[in-house]
Amino acid sequence: MTEKYRIILTGAGGKMGKDILAGIMKEPDIQVVGAVDFKMIGKDIGFYAGEEAINVTIQDKLEQVIIDTKPQIMIDFTNPQAVMKNIRTALSHKVASVVGTTGLTSHDVEELAELTEKHQTPVFIAPNFALGAVLMMRFAQEAGKYFPHVEVIEKHHDQKMDAPSGTALKTMEMIAESRKEMHQGASHEFEKIPGSRGGYYQGMRVHSVRLPGLIAHQEVIFGGQGQTLTIRHDSLSRDSFVPGVLLAIRNILNMKGVVYGLEKLLW
C-alpha cells in the first residue's frame, strides 16, 4: 500500500477546520496525525468530525504536536493573527504548509519566500480552495480584456475578520493583468457616506458584505456599452473547499518555494 500523507491541521476547532477534517479523514491516502486549536482541546478529532474516535485529540501547542507526530504537511485554517507564526513554526521543522487562511500581506509572502529557501520546505497558499471559485477568477480575468469597467461584490459570514476577502483581492490582481489601470464612474463623483463606493484597487471597486447565513460568495460585474456581464460563484457549504485542499496535499511535496493560487495546480 502507498504510504499515507501525514497531516496536522491548525484551526481544527473552527467551523472550517471541522469540515476540512471530516472531508480529508475519509481519504485512504491521508492520515491525520494531529490537530491544533485553542478550542475543543482534548476532543478526539474522529468523534469531533462525526466519525469514530481515532485516538488523535486537539491540542493547543503546535510545536509540541509537530515534535510528537512528525507530520509531512500542516494545513492552516486559522486567522490572520496566527497564521504567520504557525507557518514559521512548521517551516522550522521542515513541515510543508497548505494555507487557506487569508489576510497575508505581500510582505508576509516575501518573508515566506525567504524562509522556504532557508529551510528548503514549500508553502502553498490559496485564497480560495473551491474549484468553482478558481474558475470564476479565471473567467473574470479573461472578461477584463474586453470589459475594463468592473466592480467586485464579495459576501461572507459575519465572523470573517479580513476585508476584502483574499478571493476578491486575487480576482482583482488577475483582472489587472488584463487591463490598464483606469478611473471608473463620474469624474466628480462624491460619497455622502464615506466608503459608499467601496474599496479601490487599480481603478476597480470592491464591496464586502458580512452577514450571518452566508458562507463564501462573489460576483464580478462588468459594464459595457448597452450591456453588463456578471460572473458569480457561491460556496453553499464548507465542504466545497475539500477537493481543492486534497489537490494541494497531493501536490505540495513536489513544490519548491512559495506557490500562490489553486490555479497553479489546474493549468
Rank of each mutant, 00 (worst) to 15 (best):
N251D: 04
V209M: 09
E114W: 05
N128L: 11
K170G: 00
V123K: 03
I45P: 03
T102C: 12
T89Y: 03
K85S: 07
E52I: 08
F241D: 04
G203H: 07
A186M: 11
I193W: 10
D158T: 01
I249A: 02
T89Q: 04
Q227W: 01
K264M: 04
L253R: 06
V245D: 02
F139Q: 08
T230V: 11
E151C: 11
M172D: 07
Q59E: 14
Q31R: 13
T101M: 09
F190I: 13
M84P: 01
E181N: 13
H149E: 05
Y200Q: 12
L229V: 13
A49D: 01
K4Y: 00
I75D: 00
Q141W: 04
S165T: 14
V95I: 15
G166T: 02
M161A: 10
T102K: 15
T167G: 10
P243T: 06
T2P: 02
G46K: 10
L131I: 15
D44I: 10
E63S: 10
A82S: 15
P28M: 09
S235G: 05
G244T: 10
E63F: 04
V242A: 11
V32L: 07
V98I: 14
P212H: 01
N251L: 04
S92A: 14
A35H: 09
D162T: 10
M1H: 01
G132Y: 04
P212M: 00
D239H: 12
K170W: 08
D37A: 13
D76W: 01
K192F: 13
R210A: 07
A168K: 06
G144R: 13
D60H: 10
Q202V: 07
G144C: 12
G244D: 08
E177T: 12
V258R: 06
E173P: 08
I67L: 10
E117Y: 10
G224V: 07
L211H: 03
A163H: 05
V259Q: 11
A53H: 00
G34T: 07
Q31G: 07
Q64R: 14
I231W: 01
A53F: 00
L21N: 07
A53G: 08
R179I: 12
I221A: 03
F38S: 08
M84I: 11
S196V: 09
T2R: 09
A82P: 02
S237Y: 06
V150L: 07
H119W: 15
Q72C: 01
D76S: 15
